[in-house]
Design a protein around this nucleic acid. Structure first.
Length: 586
RNA sequence: GCGCCCGUAGCUCAGCUGGAUAGAGUACCGCCCUCCGAAGGCGGGGGUCACAGGUUCAAAUCCUGUCGGGCGCGCCA
């Protein structure tokens, strides 16, 4: 609808350019928007004001010339010039009425488009270290990333959803060692668990699996394990040196194969849990991409060699550095440590190089905002490799600050004191949690009130929207029970009967839906959709209270029933894009 | 100290990316089921858009500075 108006204005502008009224080079893309106030018609454009200066005329005069050049259309009831030079368009009633059968016929497809023209976009999100279960902090990235992906797909992009699995590196070694130490405790070895180890219950669970399946095959006595290990922090030592010593000891005592086994057991158990958890949260991936595979395939080495041959690397203090400051980073970064191991950053360079080599037109990374300092160096690396860094967009999601009983909840994976995503999902349900998470734009800090979310109260707007859907279903249920006939051909209905202001407001909202989906997708702002659905539900509930649908007048009844049928379709489509269910009963 | 994000009603947030009289939810107050689901509707009060300059026909929105809050500045991942 908006598109059609845009085309009309474009045609009029062309006329004026040909007539020499507007200089060719001043031609902007006409911007048209919905009016806030219905007294200003349905759509308005500021084009005359924007062009008044280059056209050396005043805005209202230019607006008039534009209207004179506007092609005739049966969409438009009338056009007015208002205020400093706005042009307001009022659409005809039939333009709106024809929308109702169109929505019903398009069904699931209403709101979808081919705007993306099949371009390939990769969306990588969550990618939490597999060192423990997902917590509520990850939930926001999960909900946000998956809805952004779904939105982009809805407007015609070919979307690839990916989870980057950090299955290499020191954190994973700490996990493996933590599991082993807990296992030794299950074997009745007396030991002091390291301050820097992972202390969550899930570590005990994995250790218990090892103990159950393999008895004491992995047992070594505690004295041997801790012999000559640097002191831990509580004992006045360094907790990092302590845990590193224990990792080395584990590898040495267990040997490569058995150490590997414990490591894999921990990794796979947790990864299965994460995959399961996300699936139940309505988040699914096309690919789980292993960091380790980058090393094993030689990609990391290849990326480093490419940087080296392009002259972006240098040696200092026994390490190899990437001169990222050449591309705006605040300091240079190590890619190979003095112990010969590549850094996490080196893997990430290889990973992003690999993403672009896979042929994506655009790559989106959804990161926690605490990683924002990392963005310049990744972009720098892409630039140094000769890739186009503008193909990469990093969307930073601010943390959700949790509140319980009015107080902030402190979270730490190490201490094991956190609220898991699973726990949240079980208590409030995936629907409410997802809707709640995407209600705010990603750069906004979010207060997540656990008591409120868990309370199943009406404060949560998801119920309000779902209720609108259930209510409409209920109307048709009533019609069936009372044997009231419902016209099943949406084109055989006289929509001109829908003359109430509530009806017009509702139809206008339905017409906005495709514009909302497009804007939400292009700006990566799912919250636009949640706000829209709230407004739409409000329009419906207001209508419901003001007028009755199951009435004697057959013609009016059928028109109203088709209208709420179209409304149900749009509510359903919108909730579907958010990954939220549209229940018929609640 | 430097960098990124944020500052709008008591609270939680929108504000269509520069437009017309700044809006919702919640909380508070008052109404509305003999009626398709009251998980609903209607009405009311509540604002120095943190502050100060600047840009222009037009600024909550863009620029600069100040103040306040969050986060980040490892040869961790």
């Amino acid at each position: 609808m908006k598109k059609q108006i845009e085309q009309l204005i474009q045609a009029a502008l062309k006329q004026l350019v040909l007539g020499g009224v507007i200089p060719q080079e001043a031609m902007p893309v006409p911007k048209i928007e919905r009016t806030k106030d219905s007294r200003h018609g349905d759509f308005a454009t500021n084009i005359a004001m924007a062009l008044a200066r280059p056209a050396r005329t005043n805005p209202r005069e230019l607006a008039q010339r534009l209207l004179d050049a506007l092609p005739a259309s049966d969409l438009i009831e009338r056009c007015d010039i208002a205020g400093p030079g706005f042009i307001n368009f009022t659409l005809t009633a039939t333009a709106y009425h024809s929308l109702i059968p169109a929505i019903i016929e398009q069904g699931h497809g209403y709101g979808r488009s081919e705007l993306g023209k099949g371009k390939r976009i990769q969306v990588e999100f969550v990618s939490a270290n597999p060192t423990g279960p997902l917590h509520v902090g990850h939930g926001r990235g999960a909900a946000y990333g998956s809805v952004v992906a779904d939105l982009l797909q809805a407007i015609g992009f070919d979307v690839h959803r990916e989870y980057y699995v950090n299955d290499a590196g020191r954190q994973m070694d700490i996990l493996a060692t933590s599991v082993w130490l807990r296992y030794l405790e299950l074997c009745d070895e007396a030991l002091t668990f390291p301050a820097n180890g992972y202390r969550g219950d899930y570590v005990w669970d994995i250790a218990a699996t090892l103990h159950r399946d393999h008895g004491e095959a992995y047992r070594h006595d505690a004295e041997t394990v801790f012999h000559n290990i640097p002191a831990d922090e509580p004992a006045g030592g360094d907790k990092e040196a302590h845990i590193d010593g224990l990792i080395d000891r584990a590898k040495q005592l267990l040997g490569d194969n058995r150490y590997r086994f414990v490591f894999e057991l921990g990794l796979n158990t947790i990864l299965d849990d994460i995959r399961d958890d996300l699936g139940l949260f309505g988040v699914n991936y096309d690919e789980w991409y292993s960091e380790r595979s980058l090393t094993e395939s030689g990609s990391v080495t290849r990326a480093i060699e490419r940087l080296r041959s392009a002259g972006h690397l240098y040696d200092k203090d026994g390490a190899v550095w990437f001169r990222s400051t050449d591309y705006g980073d605040e300091k240079d970064r190590v890619v190979i440590r003095d112990n010969g191991q590549t850094t996490y950053f080196a893997s990430d360079i290889a990973y992003h190089m690999d993403k672009l080599e896979r042929g994506f037109d655009r790559v989106i990374d959804v990161w926690g905002a605490d990683h924002h300092g990392y963005v310049p160096r990744v972009k720098a690396a892409l630039q140094a490799l000769g890739d186009d860094p503008s193909k990469l967009d990093v969307l930073l999601v601010q943390f959700a600050i949790l509140y319980r009983s009015g107080e902030k909840v402190q979270m730490s994976t190490r201490s094991g004191q956190f609220v898991t995503l699973r726990e949240l999902r079980k208590e409030v349900g995936a629907d409410a949690a997802r809707f709640f998470y995407v209600m705010r734009k990603c750069e906004q800090h979010m207060d997540f009130d656990l008591d409120l979310a868990k309370s199943q109260s009406n404060d949560n707007p998801v119920y309000y929207v779902q209720y609108a859907h259930a209510r409409i279903c209920s109307v048709f249920q009533q019609a069936a029970e009372q044997s009231i006939s419902v016209e099943d051909d949406p084109t055989a209905v006289d929509y001109a009967l829908l003359s109430e202001s509530h009806e017009q407001a509702l139809i206008t909202s339905l017409a906005r839906y495709p514009e909302i989906v497009e804007a939400a997708a292009l700006h990566e702002e799912p919250h636009q959709l949640t706000h829209y659905l709230r407004d739409l539900a409000n329009d419906f509930h207001t209508y419901y209270n003001a007028h009755k649908f199951l009435i004697q007048d057959t013609a009016l009844r059928n028109a109203r029933l088709q209208l709420i049928l179209a409304t149900r379709q749009v509510v359903r489509n919108g909730l579907n894009l958010l990954g939220v269910s549209a229940p018929e009963k609640m």
